[in-house]
Design a protein around this nucleic acid. Structure first.
Lengths: 336, 336
DNA sequence: AGTGCTGTGTAGAACGTTCTCCATTGGTAG
DNA sequence: CTACCAATGGAGAACGTTCTACACAGCACT
């Protein structure tokens, strides 16, 4: 039951060398002869030794990276995490996720906890906290922030190019012949700026302007209900739009329901596009045209930047990942 | 930049006592006078001291519980995690999640990593490993296994009562007047037994038998495509079923698509039910009747059992959580 | 006055690593 | 032969806690 852990001292005894020597071999440090190398490695294998992270933490690295998740339900977390672990798969680093909750307070508690557990670095996904708080954390530990536009000097950032993503949708719809294209966005309540939906709406406006078209933004919320309500309002108008671009797929699903109820067929009477390319968007029965963020790349980039930071880079980097448009069945030429 | 961490020694100096005394206060140990208590607490507050988990780990507890996730995409992970963190919210324990991947090898690597980081206990969600491996882990550290039927002596287990869940669906459909009810299950490839789909299929068979009806199980896979293929085969039969019970919601979505394509209206021509009550099942446009596992309760129970284990219980416990049936728009009386 | 509690505080040894010296060896240049 | 250097291995002090053992005081009994 209580089989004591194999320690570095056990290995040293077995190999007939000092613990310092074993430590050197384990860390791949300089000053080890080939003979020593093989002797120690063999002893390690025989005993099944694994370094004790907590003991390591007291001196140097712990080889643990933390990823704080703000909302576990967010549909592209799995992709981001896969990207992170994928990029780190062949390194010695281990990834642990911390469910931070939606509240600033619980998120702070989680980041504190991760720092207390002496992680080597942190990836914060869509953190809900002020820039000052972020900077404070970043002075204690290397940090990469994902999903907030406008990074700061103290930490690195990875963002989806939401302006470009919105542009892709508008270009696509204009290319199909649409001119009355409405956008449904999320109603801003928090004071935080640089949030994705704001940037997406701005990208939509820019793209419409570039095509010489009038923009038409309606703010409800990024929920199925929000999309439904927004679409009902838009479709009740005299010159109703021929296309609706929802800032999030979940809202686009609501738009589809509203179109259904109004007896409009998609895409003949109404084209619908979303953002995020969540899993069900690809189901044949839904087949929603959407912007894909490539969470893999975002996660992999974040991991890459974090490791670089840990290993010494001090200059701050902001990396922008280009989204792609996935055209499916909900968009087509307008009926004329 | 490198503001040294506040340690127990700093607090001791500030309060004019020994580090041992501070430690006692922090841990709420016996043998502390009221005066000492206030003096130390004040010093802690003034300095903003937080215990260093790694240093703690070298001696006793680390107050960290690990949750190994096998498949991050699993739709009810968020609920389970909320249940776990909710139950632990007012304790000193922190929860960290480990993405273990689907491979036995990566899962083993993750559990090792969690043990190396001296976590106090582990919750393993649908682990893919042999009972022997599980037992081996459980001798090194307290373990609660979630989502595998048939626990062992070395660890606790929390399972959804899948037999009951399947029974609820069958009872519901029979109550509506159905007699030809088919079940789509997942094709077994791995050698692991006690997997949810097996148990659900068995529960379906039992319930059908109890009603004196013939069972009809088709094994494809728990994917949208699997549900689609299964339904196509079932609906092509001479005496096609009037109801299909898919062992997972994602498969039920495929069934709905097949019904669509076959020109059958749901629920008039075909009733469809799923299992898991994933998020989109509640969208009005889908409105899928499904069995809800109540991940909250499962997570909370697992957390509870784990803490009990850590704090001394040695007798093994298996807890079964009752699912509920959520009746929505895809089930109704058969057209006759 | 001596004995034995009880209640409170402290000293100091762990815990398993890392890492900075320092010692030793052997080789090479002068 | 001496002096110096490079390469290698080891001693031992950290790191920040916990916890056992003990010291001391005060008190109640003999």
């Amino acid at each position: 039951m209580t089989s004591r852990r194999v320690t570095i001292a056990d290995v040293a005894r077995r190999a007939g060398v000092s613990t310092a020597a074993v430590s050197k071999v384990v860390r791949g440090a300089y000053g080890v002869s080939a003979e020593m190398q093989t002797k120690v490695t063999q002893a390690i294998d025989e005993l099944g030794y694994r370094p004790h992270a907590a003991a390591r933490a007291l001196r140097g690295r712990t080889y643990t990276l933390g990823v704080m998740l703000s909302d576990t339900r967010n549909p592209f977390f799995p992709d981001i995490i896969e990207g992170v672990t994928g990029r780190l798969g062949d390194t010695e680093y281990q990834v642990l996720l911390g469910p931070g909750g939606i509240e600033p307070k619980t998120q702070a508690r989680m980041t504190d906890a991760m720092i207390d557990r002496s992680m080597d670095g942190l990836i914060l996904i869509s953190p809900v906290m002020t820039d000052a708080e972020l900077t404070a954390i970043a002075t204690a530990i290397p940090v990469v922030v994902v999903g907030r536009h406008g990074g700061a000097a103290a930490y690195d950032a990875v963002v989806d190019d939401d302006v470009m993503g919105a542009g892709l949708v508008v270009d696509h719809l204009v290319g199909l012949g649409h001119t009355r294209i409405a956008h449904i966005t999320h109603l801003e309540r928090a004071r935080a700026q640089g949030l994705p939906h704001t940037v997406r709406a701005e990208g939509y406006r820019q793209a419409m302007r570039a095509h010489g078209l009038a923009d038409d933004v309606l703010a409800t919320s990024f929920t199925e209900e929000g999309g439904y309500e927004g679409a009902r309002e838009l479709l009740a108008r005299d010159d109703r739009p021929t296309a609706i671009f929802a800032g999030a797929d979940i809202a686009a699903l609501g738009v589809l329901r509203a179109a259904d109820e109004a007896g409009l067929s998609v895409p003949e009477d109404l084209s619908v596009a979303g953002y995020d390319n969540i899993g069900i968007a690809s189901l044949k029965r839904i087949s929603l045209t959407s912007v894909d963020q490539d969470g893999h790349v975002i996660g992999a980039t974040a991991a890459q930047l974090l490791v670089e930071r840990i290993e010494g880079r001090s200059r701050s980097v902001t990396s922008s990942v280009s989204p792609t448009l996935i055209v499916r069945g909900t968009t087509g030429p307008p009926r004329r």
